[in-house]
Design a protein around this nucleic acid. Structure first.
Lengths: 207, 207
DNA sequence: GTCTATAGGACGATAGAC
DNA sequence: GTCTATCGTCCTATAGAC
């Protein structure tokens, strides 16, 4: 018997940037599937056609991979949101925000409806990171604060009564998360945007 | 130097029932902290003062442990809910339900407010199990169905317009999940029941 | 009912060659 | 920039003694 010839797979050569973004994409999917504790460098490496050492070269550590994924999402998703609103990204941080609460909400949900995998990523990590020991604990604490303030500013722009602003923002964020959960569990059976518009009307009625 | 005497720890003898319930309690806390993928038999065993083999003797496998935890919660939590409503557990399955929607919701949330660790358990598993490969996928699919039907029947009892029943139930469940998430992230900063009563009023206004 | 012992992998990470 | 090789650890599960 002649020994099977050592298979020399032609590996794809990539630029550092290209490889890194391929790694982030693979990790994003796997975190959405199994959360951070279920993420393995091995599977990410396999999906990219390189070794675990290769992955670590680009992101440093498993924690570093998570951070990189979240930073990348912040960048991309804020851009997509601003695009839908027809405003520059930076003005999301302006006070007052150049857009009303209802328009902001709709843009948010319309964007999310186009990327279920990303919504699932956030849903899983948001729950997992309720524990202080989770590497994304701080990230999600400040993300919640950021979102609350953004929606509060938009509520203010819309003329919602002063005392109601914080509660309104909280109810909106809560409703979004809850509806998205149901949409992810049964994407065919429910229409995210239709559910949202109905709930939003009720939350905002009379304020 | 005399060698340190071999420490013979007096192990606590327990009945099978007692040990099993100790195991379920320990697993409940760890799943709430790290989800199913982060759960390890080692830590559960350590918390109970026995070995991994000891844990497996009682629950068969890691999957079996998760199932046992969820079945135990169903039993206990439904009892606590029925108690608050002043009805027997079985009548939760009656049609019509002997209780109105608003009362059902309030009892639900009042019970949950007393057990944050359990709420966290469900929050984490509900997100993790969005993936079909998760051992609790089926459980949460049927739990969602069960809850939707329960709240729909209560809505019907309350006289909510026929066409609105399903949407109402969905919005209520979504709102509960979303508010609980915020409460778990900042238990001191927000009042779960106060937030809920305000949101519930808005969801139910005019139906 | 719980133990010891162990199998048999999977995991994250590092060092150093190419 | 990616590899091979390896370390040391953690993991679930089984077999069989006590």
């Amino acid at each position: 018997m002649t020994p099977a010839p050592r298979e020399v797979r032609t590996r794809v050569r990539m630029s550092a940037e290209g490889r890194r973004s391929q790694i982030l994409d693979a990790a994003t999917l796997q975190i959405a599937d199994r959360g951070f504790w279920g993420l393995t460098l091995r599977e990410v490496a396999a999906a990219c056609g390189i070794t675990e050492a290769g992955v670590l070269h680009h992101v440093g550590s498993k924690d570093g991979l998570l951070v990189a994924v979240l930073e990348h999402r912040d960048l991309v998703d804020n851009l997509r949101l601003a695009e839908r609103l027809g405003i520059p990204v930076e003005s999301l941080d302006d006070d007052p925000v150049p857009v009303g609460l209802r328009a902001l909400c709709s843009a948010f949900m319309a964007r999310n409806a186009t990327q279920p995998e990303i919504v699932r990523l956030y849903t899983v990590l948001q729950a997992e990171s309720l524990n202080e020991g989770h590497p994304a604990y701080d990230y999600f604490q400040s993300r919640e604060k950021w979102a609350t303030e953004l929606f509060s500013r938009a509520a203010h722009t819309d003329g919602v009564a002063e005392g109601d602003v914080a509660a309104t923002a909280r109810e909106i964020l809560a409703g979004m998360d809850g509806l998205q959960l149901r949409w992810l569990r049964d994407p065919e059976g429910v229409d995210l945007l239709e559910m949202w518009e109905d709930l939003a009307s009720r939350i905002l009625a009379g304020r």
